[in-house]
C-alpha cells in the first residue's frame, strides 16, 4: 500500500534529442570543472565538487534501494558512517602498526580500505536488512531510522575511536602512482569511481535482477506467484545499496581525513533521501543531479545570507509541490496520473 509510485527506468515515447546528449555534456563539464576553477582562481570549487561527487555516489546507491526496489530507507546514513569508520579505523591502525581487534592488519591503501568499507557496510546492511525487510511501508522507514540511530549512539559512545570527536587521519590513503594529496587528483579519482558506479548501476537497472526488483515494487504478489523469492531479491538490493553508500562514506573519510558520528546523524539520511527525490528516484542520473543541486543550492544561499534556511526550506517545499518525479524527468513526457 505504501509503495512509492515513482517509476523505475521509464520507457518514454520520444524523449527530446538533448536528453540523450545531456549525460555526456554533464560528464564533459565535470571533467573540465577543476581546470576552469583553477583558471578562475576558485580552487575551492574543486573540493566542493569532490564533495558533491562523493555524495552523488551515496545518493545513487540509495537509489538502488529506493528508486528501483521501492524501499524507502531513512537510515542510509548508517552505512555511510560505517564505511567511513571502516576506513578511519583501518587507517589509524595502518599508521600505528597495531592490528585492529588484535588480528586485522591496518592499511593505508585506498583500494584496500574502500573494499573494506564496502564489506563492512555490506555486512551491516545485510543484518539490518534481514530484520527490517520483515516490515514494509512507513514501518520500514521507521525501523531503518531506528537502526541508524542505534549505530549513531554506539559510535558517539565509542571512546576507543574518539566518540563524538571522531577519528582524524594524518594523511590521505595512498593510491600507488598518484599524488592523492593533490585535490585535483583526488577529484578525478572520485569522479572515476562515480563513473564506474553509475556504469554498474545502469547495468543493474536493465539486468534481470533490476527487472525483478521493478516487478516486485509494482506487485509483490504477482512476482511471488511466478516463483520469485521476493524477500531475497529485496534483501540483495538493500545490501548492494548499503555497500555503495559505504563506499561513498569511505571515500568521504579519505577525502576529509576525518570521520565522526555526525556522518550517521538522521539528518544525513534525510539529506540523502532529498537528493534522490529532488533528482528523480528510479532514474540513473537523477540522484547525481539531486546531489549537485542540493549541495550547490545550500552553498549558494549560504554565501548570500546568514538566514539561508528561511529560503532553502520553502524552496524544497516548492520543489516537492511542483517537480513530480524530480529534476531528471524534466523534459520527459509525464507518464501516468
Amino acid at each position: 500500500m505504501d509503495e512509492p509510485r515513482t517509476p523505475a527506468v521509464t520507457k518514454d515515447a520520444k524523449p527530446p534529442r538533448w536528453r540523450a546528449w545531456a549525460p555526456y555534456a554533464g560528464l564533459l563539464a565535470l571533467v573540465a570543472l577543476p581546470f576552469a576553477a583553477q583558471a578562475l582562481g576558485q580552487a575551492a570549487l574543486t573540493t566542493l565538487a569532490t564533495r558533491m561527487v562523493i555524495l552523488a555516489i551515496a545518493a545513487s546507491a540509495l537509489n538502488i534501494a529506493l528508486g528501483l526496489g521501492g524501499l524507502v530507507s531513512f537510515g542510509h546514513a548508517a552505512f555511510y558512517g560505517v564505511g567511513a569508520y571502516a576506513v578511519g579505523i583501518l587507517t589509524t591502525h595502518g599508521a600505528s602498526g597495531a592490528p585492529f581487534l588484535g588480528f586485522i592488519p591496518g592499511s593505508e591503501l585506498l583500494g584496500v580500505n574502500l573494499l573494506a568499507a564496502m564489506l563492512a557496510s555490506g555486512l551491516v546492511a545485510g543484518a539490518i536488512g534481514a530484520l527490517a525487510l520483515r516490515t514494509s511501508g512507513v514501518q520500514f522507514i521507521m525501523i531503518t531510522l531506528a537502526f541508524a540511530q542505534m549505530l549513531f549512539f554506539f559510535f558517539v559512545a565509542l571512546k576507543a575511536y574518539g566518540g563524538d570527536d571522531g577519528v582524524s587521519m594524518r594523511r590521505r590513503n595512498a593510491l600507488p602512482g598518484l599524488n592523492m594529496r593533490d585535490d585535483m587528483t583526488f577529484y578525478f579519482v572520485s569522479l572515476a569511481i562515480l563513473a564506474v558506479w553509475l556504469g554498474i548501476s545502469a547495468r543493474l537497472f536493465h539486468s534481470r535482477f533490476g527487472l525483478l526488483l521493478g516487478g516486485i515494487r509494482q506487485s509483490e504478489r504477482r512476482m511471488q506467484a511466478i516463483g520469485v523469492s521476493t524477500v531475497r531479491t529485496r534483501w540483495l538490493a538493500f545490501v548492494l545499496s548499503g555497500m555503495g553508500t559505504g563506499l561513498a562514506g569511505g571515500l568521504m573519510a579519505v577525502f576529509g581525513r576525518f570521520v565522526s558520528p555526525d556522518m550517521m546523524h538522521w539528518t544525513q539520511s534525510g539529506e540523502l533521501l532529498i537528493m534522490v527525490v529532488l533528482g528523480g528516484a528510479g532514474t540513473i542520473f537523477g540522484p547525481v543531479l539531486g546531489a549537485f543541486a542540493l549541495i550547490g543550492l545550500e552553498t549558494l544561499l549560504a554565501g548570500w545570507t546568514e538566514h539561508w534556511q528561511v529560503i532553502l526550506g520553502p524552496a524544497l517545499v516548492l520543489m516537492a509541490l511542483t517537480f513530480r518525479g524530480g529534476l531528471a524527468r524534466l523534459g520527459r513526457r509525464r507518464e501516468g496520473p
Binding site: 575551492a44 570527536d165 576525518f258 555526525d262 552553498t299
Partner: peptide, 30 residues
C-alpha cells in the same frame, strides 16, 4: 565537521586567507 572543512578550504583557496579563527566546538576543531 564536514561543513567546517569546506568553509576553511574556501577561505584558504579562494579568498587566500592565511589566518583563521572562530570554531566553537571541539569536534569541528578536530
Amino acid at each position: 565537521p564536514g561543513q567546517g572543512k569546506q568553509i576553511a578550504d574556501k577561505f584558504m583557496k579562494t579568498d587566500k586567507v592565511k589566518l583563521l579563527t572562530g570554531i566553537v566546538f571541539s569536534n569541528v576543531a578536530l
